[in-house]
Structures are given as structure tokens and as C-alpha cells.
Amino acid sequence: MKYRFPLITAHCGSMNTLDHTLHSVQTGLQFGADVLEEDVRVTKDGIPVLAHDDEWITVEGEKLSLSQTSFEELRELRFEVTQGELRETIQICRLEDMLPLIQASGKVVNLDLKVDESIETAVALVKKYGMLSQAFLSGCEIERAMLAQQLNPEIRKLLNTDHNLFRTLPYREAMVQTCEDALAASCFGINIHHSIVRQELMDYAASIDLPVYVWTVNEEEMMRTYVDLGVASITTRNVAGLVQLKQRMQ
């Protein structure tokens, strides 16, 4: 193993909980995650909420768009959500409802931004709670990363890999371009799907001091592979499995 054990990042909805809920966040913390990942969008009136998709369906079957609906309207609604074997009725959760949980835990939150409009509103809340040292942004390909740097240079951010680079260019060219983009946007590391990672990338990123964060790895054998490669963080829904692997390897 080349480096210390990677940070354990709980993917939203880890340990068979529903994505974008406070229960999911609390569960990740209880199982020992170092970092909690959540998706962020904004409502029509600019309130950051926990959501991957813009379109939701109410229990009455009404289809609506978060970006076209105020939070005051949303807070009166219930949504039927199916996720694997889970089927529950939930309300939309604000980012501001989650941040105090992270703040009190002393852990870190990974805010996976789904739209450019979420940059300023999410960072404003991070600042409000004095959590610049407990938060960073992801979901930022080069244009969003550059915009985040322009708007809020004090917030840390990862560069999300443009998978098309690796589909259309030779691996080394795509790897070098990704790292150059990360440096150009003042990102502290890169966020990449585990299937793209090779030793070549790890060695090159290490040579320019760019940590590599991988997502989403749920099987123990694969977790061990990326630990041995020296990644800085593994995002997983199987937090307990990664915690147990850490205990065994130490």
C-alpha cells in the first residue's frame, strides 16, 4: 500500500438508506464515514436542496421541476420515491438542514453540484456555518470548476473527469488533459469513476500532487484494489464494508 488508507466517503443513500435524506447522512456518520457525499440543486427561489434529478413526482402523480418550483411550494408536497427495494414517501430536504449534522460531527461534506446555479448558494451556506474546512465541491467538470473558482476561490473543489476524453483520446493524452484542467481550475484533486483509473494515472497525478478520489466502489475485492493503488478517497454505498477492510488492513 503506497499511501495511508483512503478517506471513506459515504455515497448518498449508503447502507440501504434512501438518497437525499437526513437519515442517509446520519447513517453514514454512524457507520464511520470520513466524508458524506450529497447532490445539490436549487429551487426556483434559489434554495439549495438535496437532489440528483430536477424532475420529481408527487404522491398524487403530479410531475414537477425543482428549478421551476419555490421551496415554499415544495415543503407542502410529499414525493413517492422508489430506490431498489425501498419505497418511501419523503419531503425535499434543504442543504441547510444537513450542514449542522456535518458541522457537529467534525466530518467533511462533499457537495456534488448538479447545476451551475448551486455554486453560490451552496458556498454561501458553507460560509454561514463556518465550514470552509469541512466542505468541498465536486460535480465540476472544467467549465463549472472554472466558474466556481471565479465566484468563490476560497472553497476547495475536485475536478470531475470528462469521460468523453477517455473515450476519444489515447489514455495518456486524456489523463494529462484531465490533470492539466484540474490545475488550471485550482482544483485540489480529481474525482473519477473507478473503472477509468490505472496505475499510469495514479503515478502521474502523484507526480504533480493531485489526489485521486474514486467513485463508486461497493465490493470489498475492488475496494482493496483501489486501496493498493493509493487513491485518496473511495466513495461507497457499502460504508460498513470499507470500514471493516480498513480495520483488517491496519
Rank of each mutant, 00 (worst) to 15 (best):
residue 12 C to S: 12
residue 10 A to W: 03
residue 19 D to T: 14
residue 158 L to Q: 07
residue 220 E to R: 06
residue 176 V to N: 00
residue 81 V to F: 12
residue 5 F to G: 02
residue 62 E to W: 15
residue 14 S to R: 01
residue 227 V to I: 07
residue 182 A to T: 02
residue 12 C to N: 15
residue 238 N to L: 02
residue 183 L to D: 02
residue 136 F to K: 02
residue 126 V to G: 14
residue 206 A to N: 07
residue 101 L to N: 00
residue 241 G to N: 06
residue 139 G to N: 07
residue 136 F to W: 01
residue 117 E to R: 09
residue 214 V to W: 00
residue 207 S to I: 09
residue 174 A to L: 05
residue 29 L to E: 02
residue 23 H to T: 08
residue 128 K to F: 06
residue 160 N to M: 15
residue 162 D to G: 13
residue 81 V to P: 02
residue 20 H to E: 14
residue 159 L to T: 01
residue 5 F to P: 09
residue 152 N to M: 10
residue 202 M to Y: 08
residue 1 M to Y: 14
residue 176 V to R: 06
residue 20 H to K: 13
residue 130 G to R: 11
residue 11 H to A: 10
residue 140 C to Q: 02
residue 127 K to G: 09
residue 234 I to G: 00
residue 13 G to S: 06
residue 70 S to K: 04
residue 27 T to P: 07
residue 76 E to V: 08
residue 11 H to N: 06
residue 128 K to W: 10
residue 110 N to I: 00
residue 148 A to N: 04
residue 49 V to I: 13
residue 107 K to H: 05
residue 49 V to Y: 00
residue 238 N to T: 09
residue 18 L to S: 06
residue 79 F to N: 03
residue 39 D to F: 06
residue 157 K to E: 12
residue 136 F to D: 07
residue 218 N to Q: 10
residue 144 R to Y: 11
residue 52 H to T: 11
residue 116 D to P: 12
residue 175 M to Y: 12
residue 164 N to L: 15
residue 203 D to Q: 11
residue 160 N to H: 11
residue 98 M to I: 09
residue 78 R to W: 13
residue 182 A to C: 03
residue 68 Q to F: 15
residue 145 A to C: 00
residue 48 P to D: 08
residue 117 E to G: 11
residue 148 A to G: 06
residue 186 S to K: 05
residue 246 K to C: 05
residue 39 D to S: 11
residue 56 W to E: 04
residue 109 V to I: 06
residue 180 E to C: 13
